[in-house]
Amino acid sequence: MRNVNSFWSIKIPVGVTWPLALILFFGLGAQALPISAAPLDPKATIAKAVDEFTEILSDQELAIPANRERRHRLLVATAENFFDFKEISMRVMGPRWRELSDQERASFTEIFKQFLKSNYIARMDDYAGEQVLIDDQEIREDRRGNRFAMVKTRFGMREREIQINYLLLQRGGDWLVYDVNIEGVSLVRNFRTQFEPHSFNELIRRMEESIAAGKELRQS
């Protein structure tokens, strides 16, 4: 009887460890490799973006005024990895997008991107090590099966916390930001409302004017 007991006491661990080892090897092990290369989920995408931005912004050498241009270039390059400017342009133009030729769409996207850069990148220079907390993500599908995500974050300022939600959509596995919602105010919707009453050419003119003014401001 002692044998039986010892038999079990050995058998059980062996019986469990083998499948466990197999699971670890084939299951997790085999998955771990492609997962590291696989697209990130929305929350991880935002976390990565925040990390990349804060890394550039907290770099002491880049903070020197002489390196300002380089710092801005790096920030823009990072933004391009995480934002979907074509989608943003489309949503800003609304139904009018249909009437635009491919060339007009391309030039609008490019100018709007420049416009956003000239207005928002310089603002990042004000960053003073504020905490960014990433809360949770929610994923929804529209009736066509396209997948959209909302990642909630909090930007901690002094005695004040700002709720910033990032809206992302999935394109071929990757998640890209198509809107930023600050305290309930969607930036892309806000631009949409501003753009509505103006003609295409008028919009291009106003944006080019603003970009030029921004450049002047930076040089002075």
């Binding site: 969607s186 806000n190 409302t193 501003q194 009453p197």
Partner: peptide
């Protein structure tokens, strides 16, 4: 692009 509309819409959304 249009400050009046920007503020009006931001107020409404907020």
């Amino acid at each position: 692009v249009d400050p009046y509309l920007a503020i009006r819409n931001a107020y409404w959304q907020f």
